[in-house]
């Protein structure tokens, strides 16, 4: 799976209340949630994000609540991948379960700046910054996780008979 998009960069400990504030949790579709994605830390994000864009963040991304609304809001905004130094554990599971590609790669995070363009190969586990031409490696996902992401999430993967259940 190949991904290409522009970078939106944020810092450490971006929590689930920042990704989608609780005041919007009375709805649960990705499209509705996307309208408020990251609005308390970057009001421009939800309006200016382009399909395929990539969020690049520091450590412990998605800490806080278990709300699956967080990766759904990001996915609904059209984001193709989140790259972090590391993720909070519930967010990590939720990202995969809703079919949002998420990668841990401190070197790529250190290099990327807002506005950079990246290409990502999920199967190989490579991230290339077009500005510098440098390629960073991260352990590739095992095939069953690639299957889940390709299917669009865990439930579609189960329904499609792609993962054991």
């Amino acid at each position: 799976m190949r991904i290409e998009g522009n970078v939106w960069k944020y810092g450490d400990h971006v929590d689930t209340d920042a990704i989608i504030p609780a005041r919007y949790l009375n709805v649960s579709t990705a499209a509705e949630l996307a309208q408020h994605c990251l609005e308390d830390i970057d009001p421009a994000f939800a309006t200016d994000v382009q399909p395929g864009d990539i969020i690049v963040v520091g450590e412990n991304f998605g800490c806080g609540s278990s709300r699956e609304h967080a990766p759904l809001a990001i996915k609904g905004a059209g984001v193709s991948c989140v790259i972090a130094e590391n993720f909070a554990r519930i967010f990590y599971r939720n990202g995969i379960n809703v079919g949002l590609p998420i990668l841990e790669c401190p070197a790529a995070v250190a290099e990327a700046e807002t506005g950079d363009r990246l290409t990502i190969d999920l199967r190989q586990g490579t991230i290339t910054t077009l500005r510098t031409g440098r390629t960073h490696r991260t352990p590739p996902f095992p095939p069953f996780i690639v299957q889940i992401i390709k299917a669009g999430g865990l439930i579609p993967a189960i329904v499609g008979g792609l993962v054991d259940w």
């Binding site: 806080g64 609540s65 278990s66 709300r67 699956e68 990766p71 519930i90 599971r93 939720n94 379960n97 809703v98 999430g153 865990l154 439930i155 189960i158 259940w165």
Partner: peptide
């Protein structure tokens, strides 16, 4: 539990952990 504070039940000597809605659906 589809709530991050499910870990509260650790006080009872249980292994309790929060997950998202899809994990909980399964």
């Amino acid at each position: 539990g589809a709530d991050s504070h499910t870990c509260t039940y650790g006080a009872l000597g249980a292994f309790a952990t929060g997950m998202g809605s899809t994990d909980v659906a399964v």
